[in-house]
């Protein structure tokens, strides 16, 4: 109701658009897309499952989930999703298999070389407390037949490592992690991604400044508006 009343009274459509939920696609050809979608929704995003290129249209950001990278590669190639993702110019977050398909030898979008199944087979899978740069306090990180970053270009920022092997990194608009934040309740890495998406959409902080120069919070506090909205 408040959003509706703002729309009607303030005549600031661009600002209002910036307040609307972020449109996030999750690659859904195979793998753990449902949990990513659920986590993104709890953070307020609108989620689209992406199986074909046209489903990328209008998205503010894209998540490439965990799964089997060989399966992803084949199914992306069938419908030209690989080319479509290469030309997608918004922030992208890849986890596990999603990180693999972004590397130099797959889609070639992130300046890293990823070693598949680097920690070993399933018996070597583990969960651990992981410190990630930019996130306050450790994350419980679940690694499943996980890869690590074998080599990274100069522009790549390493955000976390396990036994000196980089496992979380940022390269411009790309965020990659070799573990599965979507398997826990910890939303902080997804929030970090959504912050980047929001920034790329042209909105810095939730404290929006309206075209009138007023802070949104101040406008919302006006008694007449609250009455209209309520």
């Amino acid at each position: 109701m408040l959003r509706f009343s703002l729309r009607r009274r303030c005549h600031a459509p661009d600002t209002i658009r910036q307040m609307e939920p972020l449109q996030i696609g999750v690659l859904a050809v195979q793998g753990n897309f449902r949990e990513h979608a659920a986590m993104l929704r709890t953070l307020g995003a609108d989620v689209t499952e992406v199986r074909k290129p046209e489903q990328l249209e209008g998205l503010d950001g894209l998540v490439l989930p965990g799964g089997e990278s060989t399966t992803f590669t084949r199914l992306m190639g069938l419908y030209g999703l690989d080319e479509a993702i290469r030309s997608f110019d918004r922030p992208v977050f890849g986890t596990c298999a999603g990180m693999i398909v972004l590397d130099r030898s797959h889609l070639g979008l992130v300046d890293i070389h990823v070693r598949r199944n680097a920690f070993g087979r399933q018996l070597a899978s583990f969960e651990t407390d992981l410190d990630v740069a930019g996130i306050d306090g450790p994350m419980r990180a679940v690694f499943i037949r996980a890869p690590w970053i074998e080599d990274a270009g100069d522009g790549v920022e390493i955000l976390a490592s396990v036994d000196d092997h980089p496992v979380v990194a940022r390269d411009g608009r790309f965020l990659v992690a070799s573990f599965h934040p979507e398997l826990t309740d910890d939303t902080r890495l997804h929030q970090l991604f959504l912050d980047a998406v929001r920034a790329a959409r042209g909105v810095g902080e939730p404290h929006l400044r309206l075209a009138t120069g007023q802070e949104v919070d101040d406008v919302l506090a006006q008694p007449e508006l609250r009455a209209a909205g309520g």
Partner: peptide, 21 residues
Amino acid sequence: MTEHGTMRVKSGLAEMLKGGV
């Protein structure tokens, strides 16, 4: 603490297989 073979790690692999054959 690092743990192997927890239920989350075991069921986690099945989660990654979803949508697959």
